[in-house]
Design a binder for these strands. Structure first.
Length: 277
DNA sequence: AGCTCGACCCGGACGC
DNA sequence: TGCGTCCGGGTCGAGC
């Protein structure tokens, strides 16, 4: 499940792949719903002949800047993957969008669940107007985080998953950050102590940075759910402390990790370390 | 404002 | 073995 570290890994892969500076020759779509807001023909017309000038990320969104000042925004959702390959490679099942580059390379969008979307915008600020903190930026400060937490009275689990509050966290990294900070997922945002806020702030940054260093979390046996651009799996799953470790001992205190449902989402935590107080 | 649910999807896990 | 059913995951919109 691509969250911030996985999307950042792909963005880094793309930056190193020499895709920048190459002209887009064509766009082929096999599943039209993978394109949002525009018809396939219009989307194709707007990007054909343009050069990819810059690759970045905001939250879980991947951003390909084009030479005509438009931006391709890719949201991988649950199962989206990007693959960079040669144009003679046979099209495989679940490859829904093919971006054909002038140098014979193809950037392919592979998405088994078909939840992922490609957008197109000329205004990034407007497009991302509903996104909250970018957690690895200077704008994410302890003061600002404290202020926003105090403004709300909401359980931390759904709040941290809410992209309009903080952008980039998903189920894995929220559970991991709450565990590291020793905070119960149902704790209300305005009931955290100053010390807990400080810890949670640092934990969010820590788990995301660790995820990036490990090139993402690839969960699942046989067919893991995350691969980088060149098909390489991440290694962050080996360093997880609670996520999908129900019934295993907490690495910190040895108590059994439990799975509960909070805000309709499976939530893993240590009832001993993370008590509601 | 915040909650809950349904929709979007389908591979994989599980039950029989 | 095969069939049926359910789960999960991020996000949005609707209804409460």
């Amino acid at each position: 499940m691509p969250e911030l570290p996985e999307v950042e890994t792909i963005a880094e892969n793309l930056r190193q792949s020499a895709l920048t500076g190459i002209v887009i020759e064509d766009l082929v779509i096999y599943w039209t719903k993978s394109i949002a807001h525009f018809s396939v023909e219009e989307y194709r017309r707007k990007i054909m002949g343009q050069m990819i000038t810059h690759i970045s990320r905001r939250g879980k969104n991947l951003i390909l800047a084009l030479s005509n000042d438009l931006f391709i925004i890719i949201h991988l959702r649950m199962s989206g993957r990007l693959i960079l390959c040669e144009d003679w490679n046979p099209i495989r099942k679940h490859e829904h969008i093919i971006l054909k580059m002038r140098n014979g390379k193809e950037l392919r969008f592979h998405d088994t669940r078909k939840f992922g979307r490609w957008y197109l915008t000329d205004n990034l600020n407007l497009f991302f107007k509903n996104l909250g903190f970018e957690p690895l930026n200077d704008t994410f400060t302890l003061d600002a985080f404290t202020k926003e937490l105090k403004k709300r009275s909401r359980a931390l689990k759904p709040l941290l998953l809410d992209q309009s509050f903080i952008a980039g966290l998903g189920n894995i990294y929220v559970d991991e950050a709450l565990w590291e900070a020793k905070v119960h997922p149902k704790t209300l945002s305005n009931q955290l102590s100053k010390g807990q806020i400080k810890k949670l702030f640092q934990s969010i940054i820590n788990v995301l940075k660790k995820g990036i260093i490990n090139r993402g979390t690839s969960l699942g046996s046989g067919k893991p759910n995350f691969y980088g651009l060149m098909g390489v799996q991440g290694s962050n799953q080996e360093g997880l402390n609670v996520f999908r470790l129900t019934g295993k001992p907490c690495p910190r205190c040895g108590n059994i990790i439990e799975k509960i449902i909070v805000a309709q989402r499976s939530t893993h935590f240590c009832p001993h370390c993370q008590n509601l107080g």
